[in-house]
Design a protein around this nucleic acid. Sequence first.
DNA 1: CCAAAAGTGTTGGTTTTACACCCATGG
DNA 2: CCATGGGTGTAAAACCAACACTTTTGG
Lengths: 227, 227
Amino acid sequence: MSTSPSSFPRYAVTADVVIFSLQEGILKVLLIRRGRAPFAGKWALPGGFVEPDESLEGAACRELEEETGVRDVYIEQLYTFGEPGRDPRGRTITVSYIALVPAGVAGRAGDDAAEAAWHSVAALPELAFDHRQIVDYALQRLRYKLEYTSVGFELLPDEFTLGQLQAAYEIVLGERLDKRNFRRRILESGILDEVGRKTEAAHGRPALLYCYRHDAVKEVKARRLFP
Amino acid sequence: MSTSPSSFPRYAVTADVVIFSLQEGILKVLLIRRGRAPFAGKWALPGGFVEPDESLEGAACRELEEETGVRDVYIEQLYTFGEPGRDPRGRTITVSYIALVPAGVAGRAGDDAAEAAWHSVAALPELAFDHRQIVDYALQRLRYKLEYTSVGFELLPDEFTLGQLQAAYEIVLGERLDKRNFRRRILESGILDEVGRKTEAAHGRPALLYCYRHDAVKEVKARRLFP
DNA sequence: CCAAAAGTGTTGGTTTTACACCCATGG
DNA sequence: CCATGGGTGTAAAACCAACACTTTTGG
């Protein structure tokens, strides 16, 4: 941030969000079908230009809320993509974000009435721009975070059972986990509080409900939680 | 990346680099003294506006080479800062990078003849813009990477002894490490090759020289290397 | 032969893994 | 009383932390 007289190039800047959620027991991302060129009719990540008076994360949160109606969920910056030529309309810098929203949130069409839908990460359609690359990277980061931290509950409602939490981890990581070891680790990590109530059993024995301890230390000298 | 007709806001975009190096056995970052407003006379990270035909990382590498003369060193994207108001000249998006350069590289003044100098991270002067925040975050990330991966040798010349490598880790992490445990772990990780030569001992017994195995797997399912 | 840095194994404690049965509820 | 998911402990293996002496060189 040094040289240059007073005229320097300026670029369009977008905030695009990879919104993950568990829907029907599958890890999905919310995609928007583009209504206009370029890539008209193709699916793309929700996102939009950063307005002059909002922060980058603010823009990402705004997009998230426009497309899902949810706010105050987990969101973090992922990576910034800015290759010349990645947007045929002209040079565009895209600051990407990851968001985790609880199961059961419906995608809704934005103001521009574009179509929004959840897509399984295991079977993505062809995506506009370099969005496929962004989703791939986001998924890698999500798996990594789940192994080393405890963000998994961000994919669940406020109150959940350990069984649901384990299922969420298994879906995202794509592997089975040992029930006893899983419970021991999660409970020992101290990030959960018992709510003190139980589920009304649909089948089987009712389960204790837990919630996230908001006062929990975010990241201890992180030891991997799962092998 | 969806709505907006055809006119959308555009912003200046810079690539700024936190260049780490070991100088005189101390972890330092290269800073540039600003010659013009805003923050004239203050120290700042090397960086500059991204040109229309270069990638973000390309811009970061260009700045790195302009200020140090080195190329082909370790560089990775750190975070993107874009709060409105962080640059008094107008809204600026800064994509920050971390670079690691071997000990002994001199900082050199850029084309604009601004002063460049290495500063200990332990005693930074007041920095321009929000660059202090960027350096703090970069240092956190560097320590984290050193604990979990093996990038430490990027701070050393092509050939180095295990003693030098351990010293580098100790300087960055700010703690003493056990010699036998350190050697065992580094060697077992398989990222080093013996060069097959020894140092000419200045004092004491000559040490075997090692170099980085360029074919080493970058990131195995990373287990922490140091406790 | 002294100073200086390189090099080298073992042990005890902790953590991690693998593994199988009983419990509470609804139908 | 059966089907369903919830809940619980232990033993073997792997890993990690702590620790001190011998080797090779130059002066």
